[in-house]
Computed example of a mutant assay.
Amino acid sequence: MTRIEFYVLPDDNPLGRLRAACQLAAKGWQHGMQVFIRCVDEEQSNQLDELLWSFRAERFIPHEQDADDPQAPVVVGIDQAPPFAQGLLINLASTLSSHLDQFSRIIEIVNQEPQLLTACRENFRLYRRQGYDPQRVEL
């Protein structure tokens, strides 16, 4: 069954969520997983793409926008179906992906922004209703 975790950040800084996504994508890629980062919109997707280029000066994170190369080790997109099965989904959107069954692991990144907290609590309940056992991880 798909492993689902909610990584909870201690503040409401939106850039902190993007940095956490970069760290988790790097870790997933280093462990041999295909990674799909699901963004809210095109603006966030572009911002994350730029951050991935400069995130680690000592190590490159191989990534592409979904439109440019959906087969890249780390793919940044919005809600496209992943071209790979059993990879890692890092969800930055406030809704569930329509492709849950195509991932072996899903990470939701939560910060303390009130609207996001409300959306993520609802996502937690929705995962449970669908038979998943989501876990909470404090960062």
Score class of each variant (00 low, 15 high):
Thr2Tyr: 00
Thr2Met: 03
Arg3Gly: 01
Glu5Phe: 04
Phe6Asn: 15
Phe6Ile: 08
Tyr7Cys: 09
Val8Pro: 11
Asp11Thr: 06
Asn13Ile: 02
Pro14Gly: 05
Gly16Ser: 08
Leu18Ala: 04
Arg19Lys: 07
Arg19Thr: 04
Arg19Asn: 10
Arg19Asp: 03
Cys22Trp: 00
Leu24Gly: 07
Gly28Cys: 05
Trp29Val: 02
Trp29Gln: 08
Val35His: 07
Phe36Trp: 04
Ile37Cys: 14
Arg38Gln: 15
Arg38Phe: 02
Asp41Arg: 12
Asp41Phe: 06
Asp41Ile: 06
Glu42Phe: 08
Glu43Thr: 13
Glu43Ile: 08
Gln44Ser: 08
Gln47Met: 01
Leu48Val: 10
Asp49Pro: 05
Asp49Leu: 08
Glu50Asn: 07
Leu51Met: 08
Trp53Lys: 03
Arg56His: 05
Ala57Ile: 07
Arg59Tyr: 01
Pro62His: 02
Pro62Cys: 04
Glu64His: 14
Gln65Pro: 09
Asp68Gln: 15
Pro70Asn: 14
Gln71Lys: 11
Gln71Thr: 11
Val74Thr: 13
Val74Trp: 00
Val74Leu: 09
Val75Leu: 10
Val76Lys: 12
Gly77Ile: 10
Ile78Tyr: 08
Gln80Lys: 11
Ala81Ile: 08
Pro83Glu: 07
Ala85Ser: 03
Gly87Pro: 02
Leu89Phe: 04
Asn91Lys: 12
Asn91Thr: 11
Leu92Arg: 13
Leu92Asn: 14
Ala93Trp: 09
Ser94Trp: 14
Thr95Gln: 15
Thr95Leu: 06
Thr95Ile: 11
Leu96Ile: 08
Ser97Tyr: 01
Ser97Leu: 06
His99Leu: 06
Leu100Val: 05
Gln102Ala: 01
Ser104Thr: 02
Ile106Ser: 06
Glu108Trp: 13
Glu108Val: 14
Ile109Pro: 13
Asn111Gln: 12
Gln112Cys: 11
Glu113Ile: 12
Pro114Trp: 09
Leu116Ala: 15
Thr118Leu: 13
Cys120Gly: 12
Glu122Ala: 14
Glu122Val: 13
Leu126Val: 15
Gln130Lys: 10
Gly131Pro: 00
Gly131His: 00
Pro134Asp: 06
Gln135Asp: 11
Gln135Gly: 13
Gln135Met: 11
Arg136Phe: 07
Glu138Pro: 07
Leu139Asp: 09
